[in-house]
Design a protein around this nucleic acid. Structure first.
Lengths: 219, 219
DNA sequence: ATTAATTTTTAGTCTAGCCTAAAAATTTTA
DNA sequence: TAAAATTTTTAGGCTAGACTAAAAATTAAT
């Protein structure tokens, strides 16, 4: 079954929205991320439902079918592998690669993806710490995720850090962020992705996205 | 000026056809390579003419404008650089990379292309011996081209070989192909790209595409 | 130099993927 | 729980890029 550029984008975006909720995904949420109007989204959801990639019921939102999730995971896999390539091999900064990877993720060649994976030495996460699905669509069990990726309102325990430069660790100490601390994100500011964080039940403090990315937590 | 996938393909194909002739390119020739019908090609040529990328006159064929050639050369540059990447870094064989490069050539990021160029150590030719245009759209002056790339009917002199395995060189000797020989292609067979070759004015003999690729000639 | 064959263009359609405006369903608020 | 606000869907349109069938121009053949 042939799949178009546009369809791949929809699947990827529905997948991303599904990651941080177990509810059905709303038409509007998809419209916002695809940069389309809600009416166009409805249109596309109906078509993708016919193809069996999503389970969709009028006014009730949508979720990925098993096939749909498989396809989405494959796109995510490609996106994240290309990001590793761009940062590790081409010398881009982690914040410059997203748009290019958005394009590269649509390249169709299973063999190429496998060879790329090997060339990069089978990375388990992308430059932002997000896990890279394997060929079968399984996510590696990391046992932890970057604090930056934790959904708002869920609590987790600080189990490690993703880098160990002195300045970073000193900052953690100053913020009272130590191993074992109980963490809950109360807010994420869209402007700079900075995070309001409740530590061990205390009133929330503000930390930067950069810090949140390098703090590893277990749910 | 935004450019679509389809438009890029047309420009690239017109460029390719222009390489082996100085005549205007016919609608039918383009239709064959784009795998479209002639009517669709006429349509597109009119549109691209309006944008100033080609000079087109009804029934008279088409040729690239200066802007059009610039765009085409940029696509060719990307295509050939990605081919080098696929062969040299990803371990593909030279005959497996064309389709993938057809996709990669449309990735839009000038920075990426520059970094790729550097990563590959500024190659002057792709895995098939075709020259890679530089950033400005200039073709490197190689002083020679693979025999396989010489237009039918033009004569050239054998000035080198692109590989030096014993079996290959032994075959050249057997075929009476030695340095300085005067060569003229009389026919290229579409089926296997084998070449009918006149050597020093003698009656044509048949050689494989593989051989023709590895024989370097000067026009 | 006509006629025949071929090539190219025109005219009219179709589909994917988007849009706007209005209608319908759902959710929130008083 | 009825009215108001919001979300979602329907209906109808638009453009890019393809198509077929028929007409027009060009080229080849008698």
């Amino acid at each position: 079954m042939a799949i178009s550029f546009a369809e791949e984008n929809y699947l990827k975006i529905i997948y991303r929205l599904s990651e941080s909720t177990s509810d059905d995904i709303s038409t509007n949420a998809i419209a916002e991320l695809t940069q389309n109007k809600a009416a166009s989204v409805t249109d596309m959801l109906r078509k993708m439902s016919d193809k069996g990639w999503v389970n969709y019921q009028k006014y009730q939102g949508v979720r990925l079918s098993e096939t749909g999730e498989k396809i989405a995971l494959d796109i995510v896999r490609k996106h994240r592998l290309w990001e590793v390539f761009l940062v590790n091999k081409m010398g881009f900064n982690w914040d410059e690669v997203h748009e290019i990877a958005e394009q590269l993720e649509h390249i169709e060649s299973e063999v190429l993806v496998d060879k790329l994976d090997a060339f990069l030495d089978y990375p388990r996460t992308d430059p932002h710490g997000d896990p890279i699905p394997n060929k079968k669509g399984e996510l590696p069990q990391l046992g932890y995720i970057p604090l930056a990726n934790m959904p708002i309102g869920k609590a987790g325990k600080l189990v490690g850090v993703a880098q160990d430069s002195a300045v970073f660790l000193q900052l953690l100490t100053k913020l009272n962020l130590k191993l074992g601390a109980n963490l809950e994100i109360t807010e994420i500011n869209a402007f700079d992705l900075s995070v309001s964080l409740r530590i061990d039940g205390n009133p929330p403090v503000l930390i930067s996205h950069e810090v949140a990315k390098n703090v590893l937590i277990k749910r």
